[in-house]
Amino acid sequence: MSTIGPHAAAPEPVRRIRALHTERTVTVYQAYAPALGLPAARDGRFPAAWKRERMTWIKPSFLWMMYRCGWGTKDSQETVLAVEIDRAGFDWALRHACLSHYDADEHPDRAAWKQQLKAAPARVQWDPERDLHLAPLPYRSLQLGLAGEASRRYADEWTVAITDVTPLAREIHARMRAGDTGAAAALLPEERPYPAPEGTPGLLRVS
């Protein structure tokens, strides 16, 4: 983990993908019950019990994941996973994504949006990014929903490594409770702007 926090650069555009990434991989976060999360981290892949036919939401923002799972304290979200996936797979999902809600600037009408949403293997949702206090920031963070082909490929093809980062979440949370914001910030993953691939719909462009 880097000692550089994900929100050091300002001002941020209202929506932009920020993620911990390398030339080959991008890291996303999910939280599960220990019965599923611990075997996934142990084996570096999702077990058979992971339902590939269901939609799964991946979050490139560590702090948004902390907001969602309450630092790993919420029921069935006690195990926080950092899932390193192939960038080619992540980019494929972005190129095939549809916005999760109707937007007149992106769709000619609601019927067209509903048709696109039904057919798309991935969907995009923009939610307020969070600070270390888990308070909303004035810019938004990507959530990427994967269904059907995208969900199966995520679990069985794109996943490069799975790490249990619950101890990291607890350590950052403990430092925040102690009032040591600087030390907590130093532990955050380095999330940098992620370039949307060629062919990405307008809904993913920087705005």
Rank of each mutant, 00 (worst) to 15 (best):
E53N: 11
W57N: 03
R45Q: 08
G70F: 13
E53M: 06
S61R: 12
W71F: 14
T56C: 09
A48K: 11
W57E: 07
A41C: 08
M65A: 14
A41D: 03
P39M: 05
L38M: 08
D43E: 06
D75L: 15
P47G: 04
K51E: 01
K59D: 08
P47K: 03
P47D: 03
G44P: 06
D43A: 07
P47Y: 09
G70S: 07
R52L: 15
E53H: 14
A48T: 12
G44I: 07
L38C: 03
R45A: 00
W50N: 04
P47V: 02
P60W: 12
F46V: 01
L38F: 00
G44T: 08
W57F: 13
L36G: 03
L63R: 14
P47W: 10
R68L: 09
P39L: 02
P60L: 11
G70Y: 13
R54P: 01
E53R: 14
D43V: 01
L38Q: 13
K74G: 04
P39Y: 00
A48F: 07
T73I: 01
R54H: 13
K51I: 04
G70H: 13
G72L: 08
T56I: 13
D43M: 02
M65C: 14
D43Q: 05
P39Q: 02
S76G: 02
W64C: 10
R54Q: 07
